[in-house]
Design a protein around this nucleic acid. Structure first.
Length: 503
RNA sequence: GGCGGCGUGGCCAAGUGGUCUAAGGCGACGGAUUGCAAAUCCGUUAUCGUGGGUUCGAAUCCCACCGCCGCCUCCA
């Protein structure tokens, strides 16, 4: 089994082979911390956190870097508007960012380099570029000369000549050698935020920070660089130009770009999907969203679409996904309740299933579970198709439910089939957890105290008596009352009743 | 003007040359089960934007057209 990844650079799915055997470096463009983050900021982190987990599963040693841009025009403006320093602003916004990451189970990021901590490195890199005449001073600013990079435009497939007409890039600094040249260092006045440099007081351009931090932490050539598709040009294109020119080596082996988040809104009877943006005012802060939906569901939602496609965000869409995910949780929780064993934190044991499986249905079932695992991993190997992988999870759930039903229908009294079903449940959590899904029950474990199960047993017994007496009014009252406590009863055909705490 | 993405059932969403009259989810409908429900199971619900073309064979390749979205200024 070999992982294949779509590389924006070549526009093809390529076999993944890491630069250094057994090791993988991933760099993802993080947020500019000037306004509260929204769901769009977490698409990348969810995807690449899941990817890292999968690579670890495959045996790689992975280093994952997400940068924090804590200096640029927007930050300065916002800080000024609010009457605080940019440091205060950065601290406040990044705290919210980290908090959301944690809730979304994004725990695999090894480094969060801040741009402001890398100023000397940036100056060094600009120097290096200057030595090659790839950087020059104009109007006190330092620019990168794109003609010094022979493959400029390779990532975005753009030619400079084509960019002129219709572009909103107005004829500004006429001092630039080429229209496409971009700033490496911008000069600032004495009372503005800035750092001393050989070119006077100033602050770095946006693109240089990612080049510097990624190469510092991952090496001059590293494996995977991720980001939203909107960053392909100019940001990533410029990163390549700077880094490659400075190091004389290829910069990144695989460029992975995720689709952008769109918001579905209704105008009249027409649905339309548009980009999230501040000007459109269709942004919901992540903190708010995390209040409305369980974080695990949001993560599931993101991964249930292939990463390269845009995700249309709407309450309806999340709700639909949530209902689907609940079917999986319901089965898992049910298996735990039936067997009394933890299936979230133990690994499946196919061999044990095979040993236990005596009858034909048991054997068939065991075979189906093994097949599901295979298809799940195959899907992930195919350009990290989490959507297809998740589909196999649903099929597996159906397989288990059917098995349980069949066993029950046959009046199976021995509980051996439960052992087998339990292993299948473990397979579901195990596969899900490769992507950071199904790490815990969605709700607080039911009856964590010892009293609840006993009380439930009592209540169920009483209700059963009521039903035997055909006192349905009473039995339904009990059922409704429990429902209000989010406890659902399941009356099985064989007369037994199970209970479950629903989310 | 240039670059790029998208258009698959009521909705969401996989699939990018044959196993596809098309996975999976939500919804709807019918059935089993139930005292009634819930849950679960079974079944039904698509020829893949339009029109051409290539091919023995296309949702998948090519051309044209229509529609939507993004980038070329800051953006994950």
């Amino acid at each position: 089994m070999a992982l294949r990844i779509y590389n924006t650079l070549t526009r093809e799915k390529e076999l993944f082979e890491s630069v250094n055997p057994g090791k993988v470096g991933i760099y993802l463009c993080g947020p500019t911390v000037y306004k509260p983050c929204h769901i769009g900021h977490f698409i990348g982190p969810v995807i690449f956190d899941a990817l890292k987990k999968y690579l670890i599963y495959k045996g790689y040693n992975v280093t994952f870097v997400v940068n924090i841009t804590d200096v640029d025009d927007k930050m300065i403006n916002e800080a000024q508007k609010r009457g605080i320093t940019t440091e205060q602003l950065a601290r406040e916004i990044s705290a919210g960012y980290y908090e959301a990451l944690e809730k979304l189970n994004i725990d695999s990021i090894d480094h969060f380099p801040h741009a402001t901590s890398y100023i000397p490195h940036m100056i060094q890199l600009i120097h290096k570029l200057g030595d090659q005449d790839a950087a020059y001073i104009a109007d006190g600013d330092v620019y990168f000369d794109v003609t010094k990079c022979d493959n400029y435009g390779c990532l975005s497939n753009r030619k400079q000549e084509d960019q002129l007409e219709g572009s909103r890039q107005l004829a500004g600094s006429s001092q630039k050698r080429n229209n496409a040249d971009f700033a490496l260092w911008k000069s600032v006045g004495p009372d503005e935020i800035g750092w001393e440099s050989p070119w006077g007081r100033g602050r770095p351009g946006w693109h240089i920070e990612c080049s510097v931090m990624s190469m510092d932490l991952l090496g001059e050539t590293f494996d995977i660089h991720g980001g939203g598709m909107d960053l392909i040009f100019p940001h990533h294109e410029n990163e390549i130009a700077q880094s490659q020119t400075a190091s004389g080596k290829p910069y990144v082996k695989y460029w992975m770009h995720n689709g952008l988040t769109r918001v579905r809104t209704k105008s009249g009877s027409e649905w339309k999907a548009e980009k999230m943006s501040k000007s459109l005012g269709n942004i919901k802060p992540i903190a708010e969203l995390l209040e409305e939906y369980p974080p695990a569901i949001l993560r599931f939602f993101v991964l249930s679409t292939h990463y390269r496609r845009p995700i249309d965000f709407s309450d309806e869409a999340i709700t639909a996904v949530q209902k689907g995910a609940n079917n999986i949780y319901r089965l898992l929780d049910r298996l735990e309740a039936l067997t009394g064993d933890d299936i979230y934190h133990t690994k499946p044991n196919i061999a044990a299933m095979e040993n236990q499986a005596q009858s034909e249905p048991d054997k068939k079932f065991t075979e189906d579970v093994a097949q599901a695992q295979l298809r799940y991993l195959e899907a992930l190997d195919d350009d990290f198709n989490t959507a297809a992988a998740i589909a196999t999870l649903f099929e597996l759930v159906n397989t288990v439910n059917r098995y349980l039903d069949d066993q029950r229908a046959q009046g199976q009294t021995n509980k051996e089939f439960l052992t087998i079903a339990q292993e299948a449940g473990r397979m579901i959590t195990h596969l899900g957890q490769i992507l950071g899904l199904f790490t815990h029950p969605l709700t607080k474990a039911a009856g964590t105290d010892s009293l609840t199960p006993q009380l439930m047993e009592l209540i169920i017994k009483l209700r059963k008596q009521a039903r035997t007496d055909k006192n349905f009014q009473l039995s339904d009252t009990i059922r409704d009352a429990l429902k209000n406590l989010n406890i659902t009863l399941r009356d099985n055909p064989d007369g037994t009743t199970e209970w479950q705490l629903e989310s």
